[in-house]
Every structure is written in structure tokens, then in C-alpha cells.
């Protein structure tokens, strides 16, 4: 039973624990957040530790339980986490996040052509369709929302339900292979895979880009000022906003984030996401 004695909780709370939803490959996440932890630690003068999480829901729960102090959430998971964690608040997003987009893609063999009118999403009825993770904003929530606006519900897909690939890359791979005839994913992931030459355009075609919506953002616990000193949350926000492409390490961080800069954000920016989440039953 000696084993089970707590390891100095007071000490542990002096470390700023940052994390992120696992929407990319782990190696990249480790590199990115390792760098960011060093950067924040240098700027703020407190130890910063990156705690990897492999599940969207786990990130929300970890945040609610106070095991994580600052988390890079997706739109939906951020709102879920914030609603479950009194006092927490949005502090920043990327410049690209204010106007984020999803893409609908299809396998060439599905006989679908690119379209520009949202109502053409109806062509997806009866197709095998894949979302990303259940909790993904760009890979599930917003695509499902735009589908619903066009009059397509999940029951309209082949076998009466969509599939959940678990990640954007997996959606792309599964649509490209033909397991699913069509799917929706993060527009940014699509663009960068296209640029890296990892998309076989003979096999997969971009159907439609969604209208913009607010997505990823940083959420901080409400008790950081008590734990790290008055004004800490403000300083934390400022150091994120200060990241600039002119300094080498910061440049790498921003590149890995695929962002030009971080910009301030507030809870209200995500009211829309919350409404969509509620309408689709993902927020109760």
C-alpha cells in the first residue's frame, strides 16, 4: 500500500501540463508539442510538460478532471470540455481557425463529380460514407451539419449508417482505396496531403469545400492564476500570440501547426459550434 501514496501533489501542480487532441500522427505531435513546451517554459519561467492523449474523449475528460491545464481542442471537443469544466475559457486560435473548412471527397469509381451547390450533397445518398473520429469537428460535426442542411441524414447512407474511420488520414486512405465511396475530412489535412503528393488524384476527387466555421482553439483552466500567480493566464495567452515566424524555433512551431500566427479568441466565437453540436446531439 506504500506504493499508492501520492507523489507530492503540490509539486505536480507547479507544472503546466499541456496537451492536444490526437488529430495527427504521434511523431509529429510529439515533436510539435515538445518544442512548444520548451518555448512556453522559456517564456513563462515555469516547467511545462506535454502529456500525449490518444483519444478525443479522453482529452475532454482529462481536462474536466483537472489533469490538463492547457489543451489544443477541436471545435466540438473544446465546447464539450468548456461546458463540463466551469471557469475554463478559450484563449487563442490560429489565424486559419476563424475560417476553417472541411472537404467532401469521393472515390473516382463512385461516379461523383465536383459541385459547387450545397444541395448537390444529396448525391451522397445511398453511398458508403466515412466520417473521421466521432468527436471531430471538421471530420464529422460540421460535415454532418452541412449534410443535414442539404437534407441528408446519416441514415441515408449505404447500410443506413456512416462509418467512422478514426482520423482524417484514415478517411483519406479509406476513400482512396474504395472501402468508402465518399468521405469528409479536415480541409487543411487534405491540402497538405495534396501538396505532399500523398493523394492519388486518379483515384480520389475533391467534391466540395464547405463554408467556413471556427474550429481548433486553445482552452485554459480557470485556476491558472491562483496556481501560477496573478495574471498568469494573460501571460500565457500573450506568449502564444507572440509566436512569430521571425524566430527559428517559433517558426518551426507555427509551421508544424500550419499556422501563420495565433490570434486571440473568446468563448463566444464558438457559440455557433455549440448550437450545431446541440442540434446534432453531440452536446447535451
Amino acid at each position: 500500500m506504500l506504493l499508492l501514496a501520492p507523489v507530492a501533489p503540490a509539486l505536480a501542480s507547479q507544472v503546466l501540463r499541456i496537451s492536444a487532441i490526437p488529430d495527427q500522427n504521434p511523431e509529429r505531435l510529439n515533436r510539435l508539442y515538445g518544442l512548444l513546451a520548451k518555448e512556453l517554459s522559456d517564456q513563462l519561467g515555469v516547467p511545462v510538460k506535454y502529456k500525449p492523449v490518444v483519444d478525443y474523449g479522453a482529452a475532454v475528460t482529462g481536462f474536466r478532471r483537472g489533469d490538463l491545464d492547457l489543451v489544443w481542442f477541436g471545435g466540438l471537443t473544446g465546447v464539450q470540455a468548456r461546458l463540463q469544466t466551469p471557469g475554463s475559457k478559450v484563449i487563442a486560435q490560429r489565424d486559419v481557425d476563424a475560417k476553417f473548412r472541411s472537404v467532401f471527397i469521393a472515390n473516382q469509381s463512385a461516379g461523383l463529380k465536383p459541385f459547387s451547390a450545397q444541395n448537390d450533397l444529396q448525391q451522397l445518398k445511398g453511398k458508403r460514407f466515412a466520417f473521421g473520429s466521432e468527436s471531430s469537428t471538421s471530420g464529422r460535426l460540421m460535415p454532418q451539419y452541412f449534410l443535414a442542411q442539404a437534407g441528408v441524414t446519416p441514415k441515408d447512407f449505404a447500410s443506413g449508417r456512416p462509418g467512422f474511420s478514426g482520423s482524417h488520414d484514415a478517411t483519406l486512405a479509406l476513400v482512396q482505396s474504395g472501402a468508402y465511396q465518399a468521405g469528409a475530412l479536415n480541409g487543411q489535412v487534405w491540402d497538405s496531403r495534396l501538396k505532399e503528393g500523398k493523394v492519388d488524384t486518379n483515384k480520389v476527387v475533391l467534391l466540395w469545400r464547405t463554408p467556413p466555421y471556427a474550429d481548433y482553439h486553445w482552452i485554459a483552466q480557470g485556476n491558472l492564476d491562483q496556481r501560477f500567480g496573478a495574471g498568469f493566464t494573460g501571460k500565457l495567452q500573450q506568449s502564444l500570440l507572440n509566436l512569430s515566424p521571425s524566430q527559428p524555433r517559433q517558426k518551426t512551431i507555427l509551421e508544424l501547426f500550419a499556422a501563420g500566427r495565433f490570434i486571440p479568441a473568446k468563448d463566444a466565437d464558438y457559440a455557433n459550434i455549440e448550437a450545431v453540436g446541440r442540434s446534432l446531439g453531440k452536446i447535451r
Binding site: 500522427n25 504521434p26 511523431e27 505531435l29 490518444v54 474523449g57 479522453a58 488520414d169 484514415a170
Partner: peptide, 15 residues
Amino acid sequence: GLGGIGADLRLALQS
């Protein structure tokens, strides 16, 4: 999501 090699496997396979 509960840590260990399974997490590495899943993330690496999904990407």
C-alpha cells in the same frame, strides 16, 4: 486511450 503501446499502434496505423 489509456496509454502504452496500444496508443502508439493506433496513432501510427491511423496515420
